[in-house]
């Protein structure tokens, strides 16, 4: 098995043992069927135990799995007639964000998403899915085009975050992200965002202001990477695991915090184990979501989106004007 993760080691080892026994049975006269079936029962139990009790750090590992399906993997399986558009019309074409027009069950839509690479060469070309300002501006151009033609917009979120580079700052990284958030808030077409891997900070949010936000079960969405949080809070990036737990970054956490609408169940062990099946379960949620949103008119879409974000956050009103020591 390729790319197994730390926490699945017991499963992998048991599987290996079963295979070995099976081989042994077929090669010799000894009948080990009983043993094998016992082990298989144990395997099932073990798999259930491990995969249904994933810890936040385990999910981070799954979300970062090198073979985890990317935006283009899902576009290929969920949409038809996809045509990719390039360039922001100001500066360049950022390969860390892909986008274009397509049909979804016959309905014209615009699809945009962060795009990671699957190998080193592609990752370098796509800057590991970390966009520059021209990426956000391309995305915004495509969103405005979608609005003009009344096409719903589907955004796949999958980035560690905005690229912390000199050129990115010079070309107005802050402004580009801010402008996307601002303009997405006013779009008069349905916008559905799906976090499929890592949802990292402003780079994620720049494609993330939707009428509905869904998350794959093992994806994460956070204001900062666990490593970054650990470095900032405790001056030790090695405490990333602890940060992953205290920052509440998993899909169930975000659902509880009222940020996410639906958790899309994943194939056992992670989306990379069966891309086709994963695409099918995304399709089910997306279809339902789009059907609901298509009932809203332009004003209602903008209002619904505003109210959704207006509700996010926790605060309280103190009884006194000032609660500190004067």
């Amino acid at each position: 098995m390729v790319g197994e993760l730390e926490f699945e080691k017991p499963v992998v080892e048991l599987k290996k043992k079963i295979t070995e026994l099976k081989e042994f049975t077929s090669d010799s006269n000894m009948d080990l069927t009983d043993e094998i079936s016992k082990l298989e029962t144990r395997l099932q139990k073990l798999e259930n135990e491990i995969y249904s009790h994933l810890k936040p750090w385990d999910r981070v590992q799954i979300a970062r799995h090198p073979e985890r399906p990317t935006t283009l993997d899902y576009i290929e399986r969920i949409f038809t007639n996809f045509f990719e558009c390039h360039g922001d019309r100001y500066y360049g074409d950022d390969a860390a964000i892909v986008g274009g027009i397509a049909k979804y069950h016959g309905l014209p839509v615009t699809v945009i998403g962060h795009q990671r690479g699957k190998d080193t060469k592609e990752n370098i070309r796509r800057n590991f899915g970390m966009p520059h300002p021209e990426g956000y501006r391309k995305a915004l151009r495509l969103m405005k085009q979608a609005e003009k033609f009344g096409r719903p917009i589907i955004c796949f979120i999958d980035t560690k975050g905005a690229y912390p580079g000199k050129a990115a700052e010079e070309r107005g990284q802050s402004e580009a992200i801010a402008k996307n958030i601002f303009e997405m808030a006013g779009l008069t077409v349905p916008v559905i965002c799906i976090v499929i891997g890592e949802g990292g900070s402003g780079g994620a949010l720049a494609l993330g202001v939707g009428n509905q936000i869904h998350m794959l079960e093992n994806s994460t969405y956070s204001v900062i990477s666990p490593e970054g949080a650990a470095a900032l809070l405790w001056k030790d990036a090695g405490l990333a695991k602890k940060a992953a737990e205290s920052m509440k970054i998993t899909a169930p956490d975000l659902k509880e915090l009222g940020v996410v609408d639906e958790i899309i169940p994943e194939v056992r062990g992670g989306a990379h184990k069966d891309v086709a099946e994963q695409a099918a379960s995304i399709d089910t949620v997306l279809l339902q979501s789009l059907k609901e949103l298509r009932k809203l008119n332009k004003d209602e879409l903008v209002q619904q989106r505003y109210q959704k974000y207006k509700k996010i956050g926790q605060f309280t009103i103190a009884e006194e004007e000032f609660i500190g020591v004067q």
């Binding site: 958030i181 808030a185 993330g208 202001v209 204001v223 900032l232 809070l233 915090l257 926790q314």
Partner: peptide, 16 residues
């Protein structure tokens, strides 16, 4: 940092 993703979402709330 101490309010995690809720802080991130304030960017969306204010900008909207």
């Amino acid at each position: 940092m101490q309010e995690g993703v809720l802080s991130l979402m304030q960017m969306a709330k204010t900008s909207s």
